[in-house]
């Protein structure tokens, strides 16, 4: 409705101004309250983050302590088992040489001795596996000639491979001047585990230790004609967590791969499988 005189026009505009001023003041009060609430909420949030972080820290320490306790327990039990096991082995040894009319007792004793030795080896390797948890020995690595390393491996394993009906061949793909940076003993143990697996699982034919180089690494591959390393070998490589280890009836494969992996990683090498049927397991070692 139009205002008829200037005074009522001014009065209307003044009312409008009052309204706008009040709206602005209200908006500012609401915004300030909101900002203060936000600030307080943030403060509370920071305190909660600190509390949670502290709780997580405690939980992590507890979990780490539990893990260490578990490892220590396994190591302890392994040691404890070895003492009576040695007693069993020694007495079986004595029994095999004792007088026995038809020799049957000696055969049984020998069989028992083989089993006890297998058990002993299992515990030795289990102990080694536990010892190597989180081990990093890359600082101690030194140059090792690749061809000499492979040659000594082959000569060590040829007899055992032959016993299993396999021909073991070293296929030197790198020149005699090539060296890798590693610890010979640990790397040897790791390859031993792979060869042990290969000799066990290759049904016939030959096994080849092949070497090759890439940019900065030497690859030592064990190619076999048996079922090879299981596809999900990483899972098999964690036997303590119930990892899947196919062909377990042939014995010790899960621990072997797990141990080989820890051994390789402790000296800065890495382990893997290749080939459609996983007929090859390999270890890649840094070049010296």
């Amino acid at each position: 409705m139009a205002d008829t005189d200037p005074d009522s026009r001014i009065a209307r505009l003044e009312r409008r101004l009052q309204r706008e001023r009040k709206a602005r003041a209200d908006a500012e009060a609401i915004a300030e309250r909101g900002l203060r609430d936000l600030y307080e909420a943030n403060q509370g949030l920071e305190e909660r983050v600190l509390e949670r972080t502290a709780e997580l820290d405690l939980a992590r320490h507890a979990a780490e302590a539990a893990s260490r306790a578990k490892s220590a327990f396994i190591a302890h039990v392994s040691h404890e088992v070895r003492t009576p096991l040695n007693g069993v082995l020694g007495n079986l040894e004595l029994l095999t040489t004792a007088v026995d009319a038809d020799g049957a007792a000696a055969v049984f004793a020998d069989n028992a001795g083989q089993s006890a030795k297998a058990l002993q080896r299992l515990f030795d390797r289990l102990l080694r596996y536990v010892e190597l948890e989180g081990a990093d020995r890359t600082a101690e690595t030194a140059p090792v000639k690749v061809d000499a390393f492979v040659e000594s491996l082959a000569s060590r394993w040829q007899t055992r491979a032959a016993k299993g009906g396999k021909l073991l061949v070293a296929d030197p793909g790198v020149g005699p001047e090539i060296s890798m940076r590693t610890l010979e003993l640990e790397l040897g143990e790791a390859v031993d585990e792979l060869l042990d697996n290969a000799v066990r699982h290759a049904d016939n034919g030959s096994l080849t230790i092949a070497t090759s180089t890439s940019l900065d690494r030497v690859r030592i591959a064990i190619v076999d004609t048996g079922p090879g390393v299981p596809e999900d070998f990483r899972a098999a490589a964690t036997p303590l967590n119930g990892g899947r280890a196919p062909e377990r009836h042939q014995g010790g494969q899960g621990l072997g791969l797990a141990l080989a992996t820890r051994l390789a990683e402790s000296v800065g090498a890495r382990l893997g499988v290749e080939g459609e049927d996983h007929t090859s397991a390999w270890i890649e070692v840094p070049l010296a």
Binding site: M1, A2, D3, R12, R15, R16, Q18, R19, E20, R21, K22, A23, R24, D26, A27, I30, A31, G34
Partner: peptide, 22 residues
């Protein structure tokens, strides 16, 4: 127009200082 808004507020007996945050 603006005057109509004023008149509606007056007729409805409202203070009319609305802010988007309120």
């Amino acid at each position: 127009d603006d005057d109509t808004w004023d008149d509606l507020l007056d007729d409805a007996g409202l203070d009319g200082s609305y802010t988007a945050l309120g």
